[in-house]
Design a protein around this nucleic acid. Structure first.
Length: 640
RNA sequence: GCUCAUAUAGCUCAGCGGUAGAGCACUUGCUUGGUAAGUAAGAGGUCACCGGUUCAAGUCCGGUUAUGAGCUCCA
């Protein structure tokens, strides 16, 4: 039979040949590292029989797909078996791979804790040592059910029962008859398994549904070599070191307390960062045609009913109760969870003409949302946060140009904040939606055209748009490769109509404008969390809360130190002196650990020569400069 | 919201039935020292909150609150 290879060349093989036969035919090296094949675009086991005229490529253990298959085999054949060996009463649910690793969900009467992972790992090593080969059997629904019924694996039975296929259920066996149901493909033998480590245990619902039983989920990570494994474990450690909650405490930036869960108490230095960031965004917004507004914090439920929030999102809103003194008012209010209804109220004052569009309101709006208790996480997920929110009121024809302007605006802001890369995700119409297909067509096309014009790569998330319109989400990548979704650009065909926002068109008739909800940072709180982790606390000079500390070496130079501080302060630099009766090494250590960007050490020499000794964070080098030159350099550095 | 875990000095943590301990930080004294911890002394705690068991509870049990890891959610 004839097999076509990825380079379109073809090979003649005897009938009934497998992927492994093909690999052998190509070369012994390939045969050694081959673990699976892709047949006509679908991953198959290496020992599956190939069909005539199919297109086949070979997956080797060191490819991305290969590692994924290895992880898959590791969880389904090794972790699952180890758990069954150690806890014979346990039942297997599912064991997929995830980014960098895998997990397996099991039902276990005995609680499995972190301390048990060692034991399970040892059992896994024992299983791998057998280098058992893995063979596949194809069973009918009835036969497959019989197998798992006899093993009392009720989750597997459920999976089979709910499947709409009747035949070809894939059961993978090891030499000693351990069996697991799996979509495959799997490694041909356990000998291909590389380095792994079990990382954590937690609970997870069967099928991800909170109404179902909570299973035990065991997580692990796996790589081809010890080196890769260690590299990954190191990045985890690095992420832990950068944790904004830890750095926030160390650098004295903010805290939380029981009386206001999910709401930030900003300390002086944290608030300085916040203000710097806000000033930066504010000036950019002004340059880009936005008008800043401000809307009330507490608004009568009537407006939330009109906007639709009361119906849909009441669960997540903070509602105020009328107290005794004000009982005659009998009003129920809500803390705003969003700024948009407020912005429409401003828009609705007076009559708008098509000549007024696009009209762009911006607000650093403080919003409250009652997030479920288990979802809060430092600054990243809070109940009170400030959005760099904005709403663009425009016509359908202006969508494309406004999209382009926004993407460029966002891109320049991200670049100045230290994020060069971001991805764009276009979410299209969901099943439940408002608006005609015609307007959805037009809107989705406009968004896509704008991205294409600017030449940015993007991906499409079918059906992930909001019910009121398609949207773009912007995902940035931080210094250690993690992704954060921050910016958003959401078209809304619903709210203007609901709240009766109109403009008079060229035709003299009234029309509803398209509303675009947009944010670049998302929330200041979360974005500062991301900045802390991205920079590991070592903020760029212009953002740093304390920019310069002038540390005296002996008390004779105190006056000169204060003089330097005042010169810097006059130039708008956040400078402080440290005149304490401590050694210079003590002061350097303390201010370095607080991540102050510049330490100026001042001793007798500096005072006599009118110089400073400058030391930058992250470097042990010191550099002696003339005072005037140093100040000029520092002032220059303060520009974004 | 769900599961599991955690809550002791400003911070990091030890103590796990017989009414509290370390290091750092803080205060004071000595020390004026040249780039990541000078030195001595002192002060500092309703052991998260409410209840239970016990002669006796940071210590065991239950509840509440908050936090953490996941899950679910995120307009």
């Amino acid at each position: 039979m004839k097999i076509v290879l990825p380079d379109k060349s073809s090979r003649e093989l005897p009938a009934e040949s497998t992927g492994f036969d093909l690999a052998k035919d190509i070369g012994p090296g390939l045969a050694k590292s081959a673990i699976a094949v892709v047949v006509d675009g679908i991953q198959k086991d290496l020992n599956d029989v190939l069909k005539d005229k199919s297109e086949v490529s070979i997956i080797t253990i060191d490819s991305k797909e290969g590692i994924d298959i290895m992880r898959h085999t590791l969880t389904a054949q090794v972790l699952a078996k180890a758990v069954k060996n150690l806890y014979p009463e346990s039942k297997l649910a599912i064991g997929p791979t995830i980014e960098n690793g895998f997990y397996y969900d099991v039902e276990c009467s005995e609680a499995i804790s972190l301390d048990d992972l060692d034991k399970i790992e040892r059992e896994m090593h024992k299983i791998i040592k057998s280098e058992s080969s893995i063979t596949k059997k194809l069973l009918s629904k009835k036969e497959a059910l019989k197998v798992f019924k006899s093993l009392d694996e009720s989750y597997k039975e459920e999976i089979i029962n709910e499947s709409d296929q009747e035949d070809d259920f894939q059961l993978y066996y090891q030499d000693d008859d351990f069996v697991d149901l799996c979509r495959g493909p799997h490694l041909p033998s356990l000998g291909f398994i590389g380095s792994f480590k079990l990382t954590k245990v937690s609970g997870a619902y069967w099928k991800g549904d909170a109404n179902n039983k909570m299973l035990t989920r065991i997580y692990g990570t796996a790589w081809n070599t010890d080196k890769d494994l260690n590299k990954y474990l190191n990045t985890l450690e690095e992420a832990e070191k950068r944790d904004h909650r830890k750095l926030g405490k160390e650098m004295d930036l903010f805290h939380f307390q029981d009386e206001a869960p999910g709401m930030v108490f900003w300390h002086p230095d944290g608030w300085t960062i916040y203000r710097n960031l806000r000033n930066f965004v504010r000036s950019r917004l002004q340059d880009s045609g936005y008008i800043e507004v401000n809307t009330p914090q507490v608004i009568d439920r009537k407006l939330w009913e009109a906007s639709g929030h009361w119906d849909k999102y009441r669960e997540n809103m903070f509602i105020t109760e009328v107290d005794e003194e004000h009982a005659n008012e009998k009003r129920i209010n809500a803390l705003k969870p969003m700024n948009c209804p407020g912005h429409v109220q401003i828009y609705n004052q007076g009559i708008k003409s098509y000549k007024d569009l696009p009209l762009k309101y911006a607000e650093f709006g403080l919003c409250h949302r009652y997030e479920p208790s288990g979802t809060m996480h430092g600054l990243m997920r809070v109940r009170a946060f400030t959005q760099d929110d904005g709403h663009i009121f425009c016509t359908e024809n202006q969508i494309e140009s406004e999209t382009g302007l926004f993407i460029e605006f966002l891109s320049s802001l991200y670049a100045d904040l230290g994020f060069k890369d971001f991805d764009i995700k276009l979410s299209t119409r969901p099943e439940m939606r408002v608006g005609t297909d015609e307007i959805w067509d037009k809107a989705e096309e406009a968004l896509e055209a704008a991205i294409k014009n600017l030449g940015y790569p993007y991906r499409i998330d079918e059906g992930d748009g909001a019910f009121y319109g398609p949207k773009l989400d912007f995902v940035l990548t931080d210094a250690i490769g993690r992704e954060w979704q921050c910016g958003t650009f959401q078209l809304d065909f619903n709210l203007a109509e609901r709240l009766d926002a109109q403009y008079v068109g060229e035709d003299g008739k009234k029309h509803h404008p398209v509303m675009i909800h947009r944010a670049v940072l998302g929330s200041f709180e979360r974005f500062i969390g991301i900045l802390i982790e991205n920079y590991a606390g070592k903020f760029p000079f212009w953002l740093a809360p304390q920019q310069v500390v002038i540390a005296s070496i002996i008390s004779d130079v105190n006056d000169y130190s204060v003089e330097i501080m005042n010169l810097l302060k006059k130039q708008g630099i956040r400078a402080e002196v440290d005149l304490r009766n401590e050694k210079i090494s003590y002061k350097v250590r303390e201010h370095s650990s607080k991540k102050v960007p510049i330490i100026l050490a001042i001793g007798k020499n500096e005072m006599n020569d009118k110089t400073v000794s400058i030391r930058r964070i992250g470097s042990k080098d010191t550099n002696v400069l003339q005072l005037e030159d140093a100040i000029n350099e520092i002032v220059k550095e303060n520009k974004i």
